[in-house]
Amino acid sequence: MDDETVDAYLERIGAKRPERLDPAALRELHERHLLSVPFENISRTERSPFDLVEAELVDKIVHRRLGGFCYELNGTFGLLLRALGFDVTMCAGRVLLGTESGPVEWDHLCLRVDFDEPYLVDIGLGWFSRHPLRLNSTEVQTDAAGEFLIEPSENGERIVHHNGKPLYRLWPQARELEDFRESWWWHQTSPESHFTQESTCWLPTQDGRLLMLGNQLVCQKGDQWTDEFFNDDESLLAAYRQYFGLELERVPPPAVQS
């Protein structure tokens, strides 16, 4: 990622180049990314599925200003962090929520960023920690998004818990983008994948979150929940633009049929 692309990416998330490569700088970039780039599966409808390679990830997130899910969000954020000089490793995980995981053992891409100690960086789950988590800590870590616990498991694996429930299994060993290609493609195209069942778009806010499910917008602000339905294409596209910053070419189509 060249300097011009780095500057465009930082502008996309409303951040400046960090003066120091430390946990505080990582924390700032992590939060700004979460609050700026939505977790979504709708952009698969914008054009034919693209390849899981660096240039196309950067084009999608930085230049076309869309969102994505873990492979795209964490994959591209990892490229930014490396370009800035952080020590970044791509890692594999498996979500433990009873969803279909596809043809390979892992179905999630996350990041490890190393300082004197390693941090778990994950902006690719839609609703996860607002800030990086200390990967080797066995204590509960309190965050704006709840309480997190990283439990050591066999063979160096970790189980990441959110609010007392196991969320995903993490393998901290290094992976490459190519290792995720089969699972990424399955999640984009298979009618068995939950990503093809209904269009969804998540974006955390300073005091809650926004969620678009089909044509329903759900807004959480503190303990208050409201929803709104958009019954025509024009108003739905305007809502994506207003609430998520997404300029879509067309309304997401119905779910993939088996």
Results as ranks from 00 to 15, higher is better:
residue 66 L to S: 06
residue 70 C to I: 04
residue 76 T to S: 08
residue 83 A to H: 13
residue 84 L to M: 13
residue 85 G to P: 10
residue 87 D to H: 15
residue 88 V to K: 10
residue 89 T to C: 09
residue 89 T to H: 12
residue 91 C to P: 05
residue 93 G to S: 08
residue 93 G to H: 11
residue 93 G to P: 01
residue 93 G to F: 10
residue 95 V to Q: 10
residue 95 V to M: 06
residue 96 L to P: 04
residue 97 L to N: 14
residue 103 P to G: 09
residue 103 P to V: 04
residue 105 E to H: 05
residue 106 W to S: 01
residue 108 H to M: 12
residue 109 L to V: 01
residue 110 C to T: 14
residue 110 C to R: 01
residue 111 L to R: 07
residue 111 L to Y: 01
residue 113 V to G: 02
residue 114 D to I: 11
residue 116 D to N: 13
residue 118 P to A: 12
residue 118 P to W: 04
residue 119 Y to K: 09
residue 120 L to N: 07
residue 120 L to G: 08
residue 121 V to M: 09
residue 122 D to H: 02
residue 125 L to W: 08
residue 126 G to N: 08
residue 126 G to F: 04
residue 127 W to N: 02
residue 129 S to L: 05
residue 130 R to L: 09
residue 131 H to M: 07
residue 132 P to S: 11
residue 133 L to N: 00
residue 137 S to K: 04
residue 139 E to T: 11
residue 141 Q to C: 05
residue 142 T to L: 13
residue 145 A to H: 10
residue 147 E to M: 07
residue 149 L to N: 06
residue 149 L to Q: 13
residue 155 N to E: 12
residue 165 K to A: 15
residue 166 P to C: 04
residue 167 L to T: 09
residue 169 R to I: 00
residue 170 L to H: 02
residue 170 L to M: 02
residue 171 W to L: 12
residue 172 P to H: 07
residue 173 Q to C: 05
residue 175 R to Y: 14
